[in-house]
Design a protein around this nucleic acid. Structure first.
Lengths: 345, 345
DNA sequence: GTTAGCACTCCATGCACTTGAGTGCTAATA
DNA sequence: TATTAGCACTCAAGTGCATGGAGTGCTAAC
């Protein structure tokens, strides 16, 4: 049962995978002879390819066609046959350019990272930035927008900002809003979440009915914000789904696009990477998400500062250029991490 | 030259448009007879359709096929033939449900509005929220994230929040960051943008070299933020592009998806709506954006509070259900506006 | 173990043919 | 003068069939 995969078989398999990735067409025995330069006839190659088919590494779309790699073959290729991870100087340059702007909004940075990664790899890229576990409140601000409408802004000790729109039953005056804000700010600043609730309501007697409503409402929203994990996913290059997937039909592309739009769906995948802490390649049915079982996923994690990790990855066709894609993902993770950390760390 | 479009021609045109929207197939003369119930033979209908074709309202895909409406026909339909704008009770309910949550992050509100609108209309929806013209600074906060990394947070009088990541050349201590923040906050709070720059740098002598660098850097970022118009576009339902456009080829869908990803591209379109201040329908080549010239666009504006306007719209195939789409867009604009304004306004 | 040779399979292409939907035209009709 | 029945015509789409070619599997010889 245990058939040895000798060097020649490896050479042949490598040739089939590379050729198929390049052309997208089934690879015949004579093509393999040509590519590999092996000093054997196509008949010998055919025999070998027959064995590889029995091993489940190759399949024929139909009897008289060339061979196509299976998911297992891609896995074998990535694990054993792949060459050096590639990234060209111009890619490096593009990434450098992205990161050397001195000041920039961080959301924009992640978004552009995902767009650039998708462009460089011709896939759909996603960058996950877990902003969870914000421990204490640094500043609370209330902004009156109308008689019954107030905006709450929370800044946490980690520099996260939350906004909530509060709709009140009673009208509040500008002055009341200011007093409630000051009270709230001084009452709960620096406190851990679990104690904020109790401290906030203390001293509420000082306010009128409208003020008390605002205070309760704002406090609820603060706790809600702190409790909710504000994880953000940035997705770029969704257009590439259509380009790469037209072979598999438009229906398929649509399903994938919908999955991308429901970001929480992708979230689990990216969270797993945080646990893995190293480059991960999932090919075809290795993906637990059904939507991705016809795709390949390449992802890794990156340091986000303060010991936290983020993750990023791309989704593309199983016949992607693994060397390049893996190289790009690693390069982007490294560059992004470097940008977010102090040089000294 | 001026051929009268009499009632019968209108009836026929209406039937062709409705049938084509429903089935997507060219409409023949006998089908029109059946739909309209006109007491004339199909030959008469043929004659009339011939005239409508000469007028540029109908075309035949090929000689022996039925007729298909042109963009001009859709325009005529929307202007003259369309029935009541439709919106069902269940649609109303879905929108109500979206808006009756008491507290909610405003970004999330816009995002979900675009998703819901896209689902209800089977199109790609976009909601534009112009947060520009933030006049004064309400609060400035600096958060130290590392030795040379500080996050700047700006809150404006309108409740907008800006974040910028500052990378410094010199190391700063926590205490310095706090002092600089306090100085900056008291110096520029409440000032209009144009005076913030001058006031901020005053008194910088109090700080050490690192502090002065931080101050300069932060001030620059504040001004940058206030100057930059933080307009946001929320897009939902991009998957529908693929579903609706498969007839027109995948290449087309890809172009449109890319345009959606470059949001600034869509921005001009949505900004125009702010000037129009009423429901706008652009069919096919009426769209100035080349990417949309095979689509129809339906959009309108909505009140954002403080006299500001936002806009929203959908992009779909020219053969969309105009009654329903227009109804939905209007309903959503109205509901969103109502949610954002005080009931009293 | 390798190879040449050959029969075989199956896809793709092109061609001829049919079918059906729908038109345009014309001459008769109300 | 508007309408209509009738008919010839057009064209897309589907079907059946022959052909070529790419590629395989098998076998017998090396």
């Amino acid at each position: 049962m245990t058939v040895e995969i000798d060097d020649r078989k490896k050479t042949i398999l490598r040739a089939v995978v590379r050729s198929f990735i390049l052309t997208g067409k089934p690879v015949g025995s004579s093509a393999v002879t040509e590519i590999t330069g092996l000093k054997v006839s196509s008949a010998t190659i055919r025999n070998e390819m027959g064995v590889l088919e029995e091993l489940g590494l190759l399949i024929q779309p139909h009897t008289s066609a060339g061979r196509v790699p299976t998911d297992i073959a891609y896995r074998f290729y990535v694990d054993m046959l792949m060459g050096q991870r590639r990234s060209s100087a111009s890619d490096n340059e593009a990434i450098e350019k992205l990161f050397n702007a001195r000041t920039r909004e961080i959301e924009g940075l992640f978004q552009e990272a995902s767009l650039l990664l998708s462009r460089l790899t011709h896939t759909t890229a996603m960058v996950f930035a877990p902003f969870s576990a914000a421990d204490t409140v640094r500043h609370v601000e209330l902004v009156r927008l109308g008689d019954r409408r107030v905006m709450l802004i929370v800044i946490t000790s980690k520099g996260l900002v939350g906004r909530r729109l509060l709709s009140l039953d009673l009208e509040v005056k500008n002055e009341t809003v200011g007093r409630v804000a000051a009270h709230l700010d001084s009452a709960i600043c620096g406190l851990p979440v679990e104690r904020a609730a109790a401290s906030g309501v203390a001293g509420k007697a000082r306010f009128g009915e409208a003020g008390r409503e605002l205070l309760a409402c704002a406090l609820e929203a603060v706790i809600d914000y702190l409790g909710a994990i504000e994880d953000r996913v940035f997705i770029g290059g969704t257009a590439n789904i259509v380009r790469e997937m037209d072979a598999a039909g438009t229906e398929w592309a649509q399903v994938l696009l919908e999955a991308m739009e429901k970001q929480y769906f992708i979230l689990d995948l990216l969270k797993e990477l945080l646990r893995e802490r190293r480059l991960t390649v999932r090919i075809g049915e290795e993906n637990s998400l059904r939507e991705l079982q016809r795709c390949a996923f390449v992802g890794t994690s990156y340091p986000l500062g303060s010991g936290l990790l983020g993750s990023l990855g791309v989704v593309g066709p199983t016949c992607m250029d693994y060397e390049r894609t893996i190289g790009m993902v690693e390069l982007m993770a490294e560059s992004l991490g470097r940008r977010l950390l102090e040089p000294e760390d």
